[in-house]
């Protein structure tokens, strides 16, 4: 089983990305499961979503604690403190806002895909963890004209994992969007796919 955790901020569509990934994986011949980390969503606050991929139907319903892949939609989430582990738990807004450890549970072999301008070497990854970076925001502005990074990252992740086919990615985008929006998002996914393949 492959387990994926997605980190973003409310409004960035982390849950949508998880769903698109699961759908594309299913259309690529895998079984899949996507679900949000059921939080009290609000714009800008950290949001987590999960995806599982397997050859057989996925029965496990717990959250993902040791992901094989981590997708970070917003690099500004990195470096925040975990409010519980740091002993600073509270409802002061700033702490909750930053209280996310995107590397939590990363293990030997975990691949982390980060949306950032910076090169992978700028990030301090735990031992055995591989970091890949892609400037999805920039690519989205270029292709879609708006900083919506979902489909860039969807294509990039398909390129990264290999088992999700680009035809399936196009299919899920066409199912969810229509007309020009769908076309722009397909172009975005292709852009992400190419960018990660050349990375």
């Amino acid at each position: 089983m492959v387990e994926i955790r997605i980190h973003g901020r409310g409004g960035q569509g982390s849950v949508t990305l998880a769903e698109l990934l699961a759908e594309a994986a299913y259309y690529s011949g895998l079984m899949s499961q996507a679900f949000p980390n059921f939080g009290v969503e609000r714009r800008g606050a950290p949001v987590t979503a999960y995806v599982r991929l397997d050859k057989k139907f996925i029965r496990l319903r717990s959250q993902v604690y040791e992901p094989d892949y981590i997708i970070v939609q917003d690099a500004s989430l990195i470096g925040g403190v975990d409010p519980v582990k740091s002993g600073k738990a509270g409802i002061r807004q700033g702490e909750l806002f930053n209280g996310v450890n995107v590397f939590a549970g990363a293990k030997k072999g975990t691949v982390i895909l980060i949306n950032t301008k910076k090169p992978a070497s700028d990030f301090k990854a735990p031992a055995g963890v591989r970091i890949k970076t892609i400037y999805a925001t920039g690519l989205a502005l270029e292709v879609i004209g708006r900083p919506i990074v979902n489909t860039i990252l969807l294509g990039a992740f398909a390129g990264l994992i290999g088992t999700i086919k680009m035809e399936a990615v196009e299919k899920v985008i066409t199912e969810r969007f229509s007309g020009e929006i769908a076309q722009k998002n397909i172009a975005a996914a292709k852009k992400g796919y190419t960018a990660i393949s050349n990375n």
């Binding site: 998880a18 769903e19 699961a22 759908e23 299913y26 079984m31 899949s32 499961q33 996507a34 679900f35 949000p36 059921f38 139907f57 996925i58 319903r61």
Partner: peptide, 12 residues
């Protein structure tokens, strides 16, 4: 059905 766990999951 379990709220969120099954209402919000995307699965085949």
């Amino acid at each position: 059905l379990d709220g969120f766990v099954l209402t919000h999951v995307v699965e085949p």
